[in-house]
Amino acid sequence: MFKILKKQELSEFVTLFEFEAKDIAKKAEAGNFFILKIHEEGERIPLTIADFDREKGTLTTVFQKVGKTTEHLGTLNEGDFISDVIGPLGVSSHIENFGKVVCVGGGVGIAPVYPITRALKEAGNKVLSIIGARNKDLLFWEDKMRDVSDELVITTDDGSYGRKAVVTVPLEEFLKGGDIDMVIAIGPAIMMKFVCKTTEKYNVKTVVSLNSIMIDGTGMCGGCRVEVGGETKFCCVDGPEFDGADVNFDLLMERQRMYPDEEKAAMERYTEAIKGGK
């Protein structure tokens, strides 16, 4: 059982939890994720380790409510327990002094990009960051990102805060400068796809973090298959970070839509239960 110590609503749809997980915190590194299961009947879902505190023995995660499990998770409060947490999983981010890097976080992807940005900064990189969301209400961690970046650009699709643009616009401006050594981008698959299209023109290495559907997270089921450079990889153990130039994003997006009817049914049933006072 893993106790939730802190809950913070970052926006209407995005929630932060800090919870006790002493042994996982000891081993966690930037780029890792964990899997959780809320209760006996629950599904196993992966979430990124957005931060960790080895001394306190805690993990921080930021999640967006998109369906049954994340909605349910959002109803838990400080003092509540999560029944199962498994991690740290996935290959850690490769951190070194690359020179000048751009870190892009889109939507809830701001959370996972943060520890990587921090690590890159600590490794001596010059860090330019871009965070974007559909509107102001969905943005979070502006301060945290600013603290670990040399420069921070904020974009919103509707212009309600920062620049009215998608993240690829300021990204292209940075790339035009000609001295970017690497880009790291985390967000919705479609955003990562377009980031890679943009960086391709400038031949800049781009690391992305893929979010395929997972169960065990240890290489046992193969459900998380992604195609990278024409080869099948298991996202949970070979990734989740890959070289974006080689990723088949269309396949990733198709595979994310494996259970539309079931997800809808689960959500409807859950909403009914809540209304029924359960």
């Binding site: 599904e43 049954k68 689960a266």
Partner: peptide, 27 residues
């Protein structure tokens, strides 16, 4: 979509009890 390894298919069905969906959450 729809191509499974037996490990995934059986894990969903047995460990996660997907045969009892939607009582159990795993599809």
């Amino acid at each position: 979509n729809g191509v499974y390894s037996a490990n995934e298919f059986l894990t969903r069905a047995n460990l996660m009890k997907a045969y009892l969906f939607p009582e159990y959450d795993t599809p």
